[in-house]
Design a protein around this nucleic acid. Sequence first.
RNA 1: GCCGAAGUAGCUCAGUGGUAGAGCAACGGUUUCGUAAACCGUGGGUCGCGGGUUCAAUCCCCGCCUUCGGCUCCA
Length: 661
Amino acid sequence: MGFPRDFPQKTRRREPERVRSFLAIAVFRGNDGTMESAPPPSDPAPPAAAPRMTDLERLRHSAAHVMATAIAKLWPDAQFAAGPPVEDGFYYDVELGHRISPADFDKIEAEMKAVVKTNQPFERIVVSRAEALALAQKGRLAALGERALPSRYKLDILQGILEGETITLYRNGDFLDLCAGPHTMRTGNVKAFKLTAVASAYYKGDEANPQLQRIYGTAFPNKTELEAHFVMLEEAKKRDHRRLGAEMGLFAMDPEYTGPGLPLWLPKGAAILEELEKLAKETEFVAGYVRVKTPHLAREKMYTTSGHLPYYAESMFPPMEIREERRRTSDVGDAKENPASSSDRYFLKAMNCPHHHRIFAAAPRSYRDLPLRLAEYGCCYRYEQSGELFGLMRVRSMNMNDAHIYCAPDQFAAEFNAVNAMYLKYFEIFGFTKYRMRFSTSAPEGMGRKYVDEPALWKQTEDMVRRVLQESSIQYVEVPDEAAFYGPKIDVQVWSAIGREFTLATNQVDFAVPKRFGLVYRDRDNADKTPLCIHRAPLGTHERFIGFLIEHYAGNFPLWLAPDQVRVLPVTDAQLSYAQALVAELRAAQVRAEMEFSNDKLQGRIQRAEAARVHTIFVVGAKEQASGAVALRVHGKGQQGVKPRAEAIAEILAAIRNRSR
RNA sequence: GCCGAAGUAGCUCAGUGGUAGAGCAACGGUUUCGUAAACCGUGGGUCGCGGGUUCAAUCCCCGCCUUCGGCUCCA
């Protein structure tokens, strides 16, 4: 309970459904039971229930088989599991004594080329369960011939296939695999491919299962597109927030001294952080939020009450044990008076809500006080698994764009709607056009186990949320059985400029935890009632949000966010005082401005300013000084002509105020 | 946490069983310059950390840390 570790932090890319279906697999619901050839690449009608694939996916799926054929030839004891197409290519999971390393790629690719060259047809074969099992027992599936050991993963997959479903094999040359298809016509269709990575993956994604070697590759219809893909990847790498963050001096990671996952905000990054928080504060002020401030830690009782302990404990930093000397009690020889107790343990907070609940409880509340909207960009600490840390996107210390709205049931729809409107406002400001709201609901079978056992409340709340979503015509998808323990939630998924999808923000309804804290308000009928609580973080964590913004803008921030808003470059030292006066005027108006005069030529200084992504450059020479003007240059746009200084500064102030893009 | 790979100057990278180099950055000097790199010079590294092998380890071996690619997790 309590706020899921993913409250604002959710990065995992879900496997496309079709990938899972491959594991379940190899099934057509057709019923012919006869052998037939694979459909040609252009055939629009593979059996109706076959996995649907685009032409590109089909090509990549076939490439996966070509790769498996090559691997089976090089290492006949290879045990294959699943080999689907994925977003950027394909993979095949394999269990193998030999550790495949990138050094083996050349060898594997050479074998693949041989398979492509012989242009083997992909042949679709429908078999009975008994036939398939017999082949698997003989190690004949996902292999070039019979083997001493059974095809264990294929056998397992076969056992997962329901009675009555059609079982199909695909064969190319001697390579025979359990597979639902579809495939291209022949191996010769796999013209342009490349192996890209090797990693490990648990069989069926379950930690309890063996780890397999997952070999990734990609394939395209032709060499040109393949090469373009790698060029695109190189370009994407240049936008990576970890790289830009270092280049631009936004943040630093200091694992040795500060600790892994604990970013240091450098002055230029902190400037962005503060602009973001300024925006949020202004927006929330207008929307009737009030700001609070709470400590970074709390006693154990806070989290036993909230329910985070012991369940959530492993995601929290270990407790600080406060060992008081038992001075007085030891003096009188009665240590039992003051035994070390659990109340001597403090925890760094992993979420702000318990503290906010205590603020709610700090005074008697009337229905007149509701809705009460408590906002705080509290710094939370989560002990994320080491392998999960990822630049700013997954960190261990985070500022949440947090607020908790306590309201009565009849206020819920309006509050929830207002929160959604706030999300949309932000997206508009930042120019996010591609996002999706993911509405996670409960499932009846999880009641009392996975979810708080309040079926009526669940239904009521989910209906409310669904109605609000429909009425506001927000694009969303509903995902059953993915809700939080304490209520339904909405995650906002976005795609960064480099195509990475993750959850930026979460909006959750909580009808369980306020009760655990005994929170009540006195209603009109003079009865004490438990408020509903909406947890909302439209900017998620500021760390992740800025990581996303860096990639979204490729480091080229709009003026209001740009760490370097204006740089004044005097042409010669004769303009130093004029330049300094300009900087002073800009700073007096709260603009981040600086002057640079060095031994470099003007051209060199411009080059450096552009490389540093300074938003606006004022070049001032004798002419500008004489006329009280500035020569403007804007990052990405080049020279903008000469303007009177008052006009130039007024435009800058207006652009900052409007947060225009 | 798991599997694999990597860690050399602030950054990007080269290199060798005989204790290290380049470009950019930094610093100093010359140059007073008009829109994406003027010129000359200087300093800078416990080669991630700890063990081991060796006459000798940045290089070979082992352990650890961190990062990266995946996986798992993400009530």
